[in-house]
Amino acid sequence: MAALLLADQPVLALTVRPPWSQFLAAGIKRVENRTWEPPRGWRGRLVIHAGVRLDYRGFWFGARLGYRVDEDEVARGEYLAVADLADVHRPGPDCVADCAGWGEADCFHWVLSGTRRITSVEGRGRQKLFVPPPDVRELALAA
C-alpha cells in the first residue's frame, strides 16, 4: 500500500549519507547506487537529503576521483538539492557514461539529471523514499 501511494507523488526525497550527498547536490555524482528500485517505476523530482551519519569511504572515494571534501564542510541533516530521476537500471553494456566511476556492480543505478541546489532546510531524513515536508516540496517544485 505504501509503495502505491508513493508512486503517485511528483516529488519524493532520499536520504544519502555525506559526502555522497554533497557529490550528488553539486552535480558531480550523477548516479546513486541502491539495492532496490523505486516503486512501480516511479520517475520524478528527487530531493537529496544529507543524512547525519558520515560514510568515510565516500571521502576516500571522492578524493580518488579528484573531488576532495573536508569532513567539517559537509552538510548534515539538511535538504540540499533536487534532481530529476531520469532512469533506473542494472549495470551492464547499456550503462550510460554517467555511471562511469560512480556506479557499483551489484546495485541499481539511479541516474539523475538537472541537479540544482535549493535553499538548505534542516530536517530529518528517513530510510527508502519518502514524501518531503511541505516547505521542501514547494522548493523542489519551484526549482
Rank of each mutant, 00 (worst) to 15 (best):
G114S: 09
Q127R: 13
D94P: 01
M1Q: 08
C95K: 04
R64F: 12
K29F: 03
R30S: 06
V88D: 00
E73D: 15
F59Q: 01
V131R: 13
D135I: 07
F130R: 03
G101N: 09
L129E: 01
R34M: 10
R43C: 02
R117S: 15
R30C: 10
R45I: 01
L5V: 13
R124Y: 08
G44Q: 04
G66T: 10
L54E: 12
H89L: 15
P132I: 02
A13F: 07
V88H: 01
A13R: 06
S120N: 05
I118Q: 04
A2T: 12
G103C: 07
R30A: 05
Q9H: 08
S21G: 06
R90V: 01
L54W: 03
D70C: 10
P38F: 02
A140M: 08
H89E: 08
A143S: 15
E104I: 04
A100W: 11
A75D: 11
N33S: 08
W20I: 06
G103T: 04
E104A: 12
L129Y: 06
P18I: 00
V131M: 06
H89P: 01
R45S: 02
Y67L: 04
E71C: 09
A143F: 07
V121E: 01
V11Q: 04
G41L: 08
W60Q: 13
V16Y: 04
T35D: 13
P39I: 06
A142F: 01
L65N: 08
A50L: 13
H89F: 11
A26Q: 15
R68T: 14
F108A: 07
D106K: 11
P133G: 05
A13Q: 07
G41C: 07
T119Y: 02
P91A: 06
T115W: 04
G114W: 05
F23L: 15
H109T: 05
P18F: 06
L46K: 00
Y56W: 14
D98M: 11
S113K: 14
H89W: 07
V16I: 15
T35K: 13
T35I: 11
F59H: 04
S120W: 10
G92P: 03
D8C: 11
A26I: 03
G114M: 07
L6W: 04
G62Q: 10
V111H: 00
V69G: 01
C99H: 03
R64Y: 12
L4I: 13
R34L: 09
D98H: 11
W20R: 05
L85K: 00
L85D: 00
V121K: 05
D94R: 13
A63P: 00
A13T: 07
A25C: 10
R17E: 14
Y79H: 03
R57Y: 15
